[in-house]
């Protein structure tokens, strides 16, 4: 099928402001949008800059805005978009460096701020084996272990657009992953961090994050569970 691909372009070494380039191409409906961008580089303009690696939705490199919504370019097929015009733009809310590449610095800073690692200074089991965890305890935080830090959620959030100091859904998801891990001992500390002004209360439950997540994490639910834990002081 023939499609019109509109791609956001900005070269900071040449352009005063961004523009769109339009490419008319014949594609397979099963092509990924990432494939289309690779066709652009191969056949039209080899200077197009974007990040990509695994090409099947697990590395998180190629989150971008496609027809007005955040996707991984490798995880959305042409036929899914139900449109013969496809517009590709960089993520919103992060500074555009070149073409589809944005500055991920603030995103990773927010991630780091929630202590995203297991904290447990208790002695290990005397036999040196694994800490025990029941399947039910493990299931409690299963959903939030899936995060690949692609930033599709955080950069779809109106609260983050308004203020990039807001830790954002991805950081809360990663805090949730440890807060509800029965082996972790620092939930209170993380809840204190997220109870601050730039923490969970900035979430206005717009649900954009949940819709944008390429891993189908129930992000809004996770945020609500963190809010509840702050309010009740309980992890149930």
């Amino acid at each position: 099928m023939e499609i019109k691909l509109r791609v956001f372009r900005f070269n900071p070494e040449k352009d005063a402001k961004p523009h769109f380039d339009t490419f008319i191409m014949d594609v397979d409906p099963n092509d990924r949008v990432l494939d289309l961008l690779e066709y652009v580089k191969a056949d039209f303009d080899s200077t197009l800059a974007l990040r990509r690696s695994c090409a099947h939705g697990v590395c998180g490199s190629d989150a971008m805005r496609i027809n007005g919504r955040n996707y991984l370019a490798c995880k959305v097929l042409v036929k899914n978009l139900k449109s013969d015009t496809i517009t590709v733009e960089p993520l919103l809310g992060l500074r555009v460096i070149k073409d589809l590449i944005v500055d991920m610095g603030p995103f990773f800073e927010n991630f780091r701020s929630v202590l995203p690692y297991l904290i447990n200074d208790d002695p290990l089991p005397a036999d040196g084996r694994e800490r025990l965890q029941s399947p039910e305890q493990r299931e409690r935080f299963e959903d939030t272990t899936k995060c690949i830090l692609c930033a599709a959620c955080t950069t779809s959030c109106p609260s983050f657009w308004a203020d990039e100091r807001y830790v954002g859904p991805a950081a809360i998801v990663n805090a949730h992953r440890f807060i509800f891990d029965s082996r972790d001992t620092a939930a209170a500390k993380r809840l204190e961090i997220l109870n601050q002004q730039i923490g969970v209360w900035r979430c206005r439950t717009a649900f954009n994050c949940t819709e944008a997540c390429p891993r189908d994490i129930h992000i809004t639910t996770a945020i609500a569970e963190v809010k509840k834990a702050i309010n009740t002081g309980k992890l149930d």
Binding site: L118, S134, R183
Partner: peptide
């Protein structure tokens, strides 16, 4: 593998809580 578990790796568990 035990070191990874101690670092926090969320392995799937058996009914008795082991990896």
């Amino acid at each position: 593998v035990l070191d990874l578990e101690h670092m926090g790796l969320p392995f799937t568990r058996t009914a008795d809580g082991r990896i």
